[in-house]
C-alpha cells in the first residue's frame, strides 16, 4: 500500500495536468528526504516517471555526496604486508547508481551517456586521478574501487532495472544501504532520442540523521567541547556507579 499510493498520486497528477502541460518527460521522487533514525537499516529512493514518446531512451543517475578515495595495493616489505602503491580518486560520489530504459544502445548513444557520466566507467573516467609513480595498470585500481563499492552496496554493478508500468510510465528503485553517507543526493534524469538529450531534469534528495542521532551528530560537530565534557562526565558517572554496585568477591 505504501508504494502504491505514490504511483496513484503520480498517475492522477498526469490525468489532471496533461491536457494543458505537454512536457515530453516528467520525473517525480516519492520522498524528498530519507530520515536516518537510531534504528536505520537502509532505505530506497523511489522514482516515478513518464515519457510521452515510447521511442526514447530514459537514463537516471543518482549521486551521493562526494569525497576523495584512495585505493592502496599491499606489497611485502621486510616480510610484512604494507600499503605500498596507491591511486587517488579526487571527488567521487560516496554513493552512485544509475538506470537505463534500454541497454541495446548505439555507439554514439554510449558516448553520449559517457559524456554525461552515466555508467560506472564513465563516472570514474571523469574523476581527477593521482597515482604513485610505479602504478602502470590504472584499470586494475578502478576495477578494485568499483568492486569494493559494489560489495558495500554503495554502487551497482550494471545499473538498476527500470520497470515500465505501461509503455510510458516507469518506476525505478535505488537501494540505499545503512552505510550510505548522509547529505544531499543529486538525481539527474535524461530523455534521449536519436543520440541527443532532448530533455533533462535535476532533483535533490537529502539523507539526514533525525531525532536523537541528529542531535548527537550536530552537538559533536558544532559544540564539540560541551559534547566532549558530556562524554567524560558520563564515563565518570558510570565508573562511579560500577564501583558502588561492584559485587565483592
Amino acid at each position: 500500500m505504501k508504494h502504491i499510493l505514490p504511483v496513484l498520486f503520480f498517475c492522477a497528477s498526469f490525468l489532471v495536468v496533461s491536457p494543458i502541460y505537454a512536457s515530453n518527460f516528467e520525473v517525480e521522487i516519492a520522498h524528498e528526504t530519507i530520515d536516518v533514525t537510531v534504528g536505520f537499516t537502509g532505505s530506497t529512493i523511489e522514482i516515478f516517471g513518464d515519457r510521452r514518446d515510447e521511442d526514447t531512451l530514459v537514463a537516471i543517475m543518482v549521486e551521493g555526496p562526494k569525497t576523495d578515495v584512495t585505493i592502496w595495493e599491499k606489497a611485502r616489505v621486510f616480510g610484512t604486508w604494507v600499503n605500498r602503491y596507491f591511486v587517488h580518486f579526487d571527488n567521487i560520489p560516496k554513493y552512485y547508481s544509475y538506470s537505463l530504459s534500454g541497454t541495446n544502445n548505439s555507439e554514439k548513444t554510449k558516448r553520449l551517456l559517457a559524456f554525461h557520466g552515466i555508467g560506472n566507467d564513465a563516472m570514474l573516467s571523469n574523476a581527477r586521478i593521482e597515482k604513485s609513480g610505479s602504478v602502470e595498470d590504472l584499470e586494475l585500481f578502478k576495477k578494485e574501487l568499483l568492486k569494493k563499492k559494489v560489495d558495500a552496496g554503495l554502487y551497482t554493478k550494471d545499473g538498476v532495472k527500470m520497470n515500465f508500468i505501461n509503455n510510458n510510465f516507469f518506476r525505478v528503485r535505488f537501494d540505499i544501504p545503512a552505510s550510505a553517507a548522509t547529505g544531499n543526493y543529486i538525481i539527474k534524469s535524461y530523455l534521449i532520442k536519436d543520440d541527443e538529450v532532448i530533455e533533462h531534469n535535476t532533483d535533490m534528495l537529502s539523507v539526514e540523521q533525525v531525532g536523537l542521532n541528529a542531535f548527537i551528530n550536530e552537538s559533536a560537530r558544532k559544540h564539540s567541547f560541551i559534547y566532549a565534557f558530556v562524554c567524560i562526565f558520563l564515563a565518570f558517572f558510570s565508573g562511579w556507579l560500577i564501583s558502588v554496585l561492584k559485587v565483592r568477591p
Binding site: V38, N213, A220, F225, A228, C231, L234, I242, K246
Partner: peptide, 28 residues
C-alpha cells in the same frame, strides 16, 4: 577523549554508552 572529540570528531557517545553498559554487567 577531549582531543579526539574536538580535533577529529571521532568520539561516538552512543557506542560508548553501550560499551560501558555491557562493561558494568560483565564486570560484576
Amino acid at each position: 577523549t577531549m582531543m579526539h572529540a574536538t580535533i577529529s570528531n571521532s568520539v561516538d557517545i552512543m557506542l560508548a554508552v553501550f560499551l560501558i553498559l555491557g562493561g558494568v554487567i560483565g564486570a560484576q
